[in-house]
């Protein structure tokens, strides 16, 4: 109760979002500590993607606030691009820049947004590609990469900006099981190295072994929050998470 606000790296306060007559987010709040890996699960269409996009303002929420450290991300006007450098994002469909090679995809924001010299950017990009095991594919174009490879490059692209937190929106949903594993491996490594991550995923194995907290969302609100030990343990509660996991467990066979 007496927690200092500054313990948290990211704070999300009462986010509301409505599209037309559909209220997609009905007041979502949570806090993230440095090094946390928060996994979001929930049925389709409950606003998980919308929530992540509200955090870096790709979608502007109707009300509510987002704080990174002590600075407000919402209502920050032109400064939003500074925050977006500090909040990385990885997408379900990778969104690699189609006209640039893998390494150029990682370099471009370093040069154009951060103002790095091309040499320094190249070195940094190579380093990050090595982190995700993609240095051998540096000169390949996106269309010449498998889905898993493309996703690892997009993770390198986010990492290169040295963000305080990375948002992952179903990073493996477009991938075959084999490719899913290689991407999850990279994410697991990041978590162990202390990266702060918000991950929307249906990969329960990942949630169980990596998450610091599992958040279950439904109908635009957070229904349940718990640590993996609580959620997967024998204790009571968490009926909704468990029944949901039962349903997708049947599908994924995890």
């Amino acid at each position: 109760m007496s927690e200092n606000k500054t313990d948290y790296i990211l704070r999300v306060e009462d986010i509301h979002k409505t599209y037309g007559d559909a209220e997609v987010l009905k007041g979502v709040s949570f806090n993230v500590r440095k090094g946390d890996t928060i996994v979001f699960i929930g049925p389709s269409g409950t606003g998980k993607s919308t929530l992540l996009r509200c955090i870096n303002q790709l979608t502007v929420p109707d009300s509510g606030r987002v704080w990174l450290h002590d600075e407000e991300v919402t209502n920050s006007g032109k400064k939003i691009n500074r925050f977006r450098q500090k909040i990385g994002m990885v997408f379900q469909n990778f969104y690699l820049f189609d006209h640039l090679t893998a390494i150029k995809n990682v370099e471009i924001a370093l040069i154009k947004v951060k103002g790095m010299s091309p040499e320094a950017a190249r070195e940094k990009a190579l380093y990050e590609l090595r982190q995700v095991g993609m240095e051998d594919f540096a000169d390949h174009y996106p269309a010449e990469l498998s889905g898993g490879q493309a996703q690892r490059v997009s993770i390198a692209r986010a990492l290169a900006m040295e963000p305080d937190v990375i948002l992952f929106d179903e990073p493996t949903s477009a991938l075959d099981p084999e490719l899913t594993r290689e991407v999850l491996e990279v994410m697991r490594k990041l978590a162990l190295e202390g990266m702060t991550m918000l991950v929307v995923t249906h990969e329960m194995g990942f949630a169980r072994s990596v998450a610091t907290e599992i958040v279950f969302m439904e109908s635009g609100v957070i229904q349940e929050i718990g640590t993996p030990a609580e959620v997967f343990g024998d204790g009571g509660g968490f009926e909704r998470i468990r029944s949901f996991m039962g349903k997708i467990g049947d599908l994924s066979g995890d």
Binding site: L58, N81, R84, M89, L96, A109, K112
Partner: peptide
Amino acid sequence: VKEGQLIAASALGMTKRQ
């Protein structure tokens, strides 16, 4: 040009002009 390209660029902190 696919919408995702602009979204990814924004997510990296690029301005619309960039």
